[in-house]
Design a protein around this nucleic acid. Sequence first.
DNA 1: CTGTAATCCACATATTTATGTGATTGAATT
DNA 2: AATTCAATCACATAAATATGTGGATTACAG
Lengths: 210, 210
Amino acid sequence: MIKLLIYEDNPQLREGLTMLIDGSEGFSVLAAFKNCSNVANEIKTYQPDVILMDIDMPGVNGLQGLKIIRETNTEVKILMLTVFDDHQNIFEALQNGANGYILKKTPPAKLLEYIEEASTGGAPMTASVATQVLKMFAQLNLPSDKDYNLSEREKEVLQWLVKGYSYKMIAAEMFIAMDTVRSHIKKIYEKLHVNSKSEAVAKAFRDKIV
Amino acid sequence: MIKLLIYEDNPQLREGLTMLIDGSEGFSVLAAFKNCSNVANEIKTYQPDVILMDIDMPGVNGLQGLKIIRETNTEVKILMLTVFDDHQNIFEALQNGANGYILKKTPPAKLLEYIEEASTGGAPMTASVATQVLKMFAQLNLPSDKDYNLSEREKEVLQWLVKGYSYKMIAAEMFIAMDTVRSHIKKIYEKLHVNSKSEAVAKAFRDKIV
DNA sequence: CTGTAATCCACATATTTATGTGATTGAATT
DNA sequence: AATTCAATCACATAAATATGTGGATTACAG
């Protein structure tokens, strides 16, 4: 038996969802609310397995509710339920630990399937949402694993540079002469094709050397 | 009619997939190969709508094949097909523009559904994969949109700093005196709680101010 | 065996940065 | 009207950084 809470401001939809889900075998709607203004307590009181969370609600909305819940509870499955497959909302929801993101136009049978999936650790997403998620992934810029052929020692020096250490401090940290630090740094600049500390730091970040 | 290419090293599975898909209404398997060693040409020759791509293949494997294809073709839908829902492979595939990621244990009916979904711009994923994708999302660390109350002018100066410009150059770029640049920078350091150019640059990157 | 590369150190000098102390103007707020 | 703050500029000094030239050692590959 999957126990649910529903957060949805529209009274008709709230009633409709409750009837649909509560009337289905294996599902039980514990309660339904019109916003998240008391969500923390409600979760603690009802101990649901799954939460259907509308995003667009007056008062404390679904994204805020999601964050509030996740501050103390990482177990309960939260299924975002919304009209729009809006880029920004999807992103924010998934960033904050939502377990799924489905559109309200989802047919009833499919909805029950999605709830089931969420409760068993899945990540149900409407197709259009999944597509956007993948696009976001492809746009992430990650370790471009460029090498620049930095030697171990040079990488080590670069680490300290990035932390804002002066030559003198680096020399002390690495137990070598300041002049040696200098020659390492010179070599680093050559290899990175830069000619100042801050450029080296910037490049280290950009190319994820650090 | 959805036109497919299949890349799969196991002869039995390759045959099986071809028969299943080609024998289904609305699907046509143009060809099937045992690895990606000639993938660029094959794509150009056959102009498929969807590619089923095994990851584990001898010679040029599926991930390499994916990258090769995406160098010249961002249109064709590529569905990764593999035995393991391995974190690293999922990540790399999605990073490189795969349109879906499904496990080989997927039942035939579901597989056809997935292919259909991919061809219409969806992003079919096995539940366990979708779950991992969401987890990765939640672990991403993003613009912590910290403010630091930098004024417009200060932000502008910071941009130049990050680009490695010297005070003198910044002064020239911004048509102000070097001393003014200095006072801006001093203020920036105060606000960011740092005390050197490279630290400021590092912080700008870390906190995504730039 | 020889060349190459990484690591280490030194001395000299020019440029750049950091720090301090002031000051003026104008716009926005109280 | 008084205050605050961003933005502008100035002068001075100390510290850090960049650049050049040069040399020593070790280790490893061809």
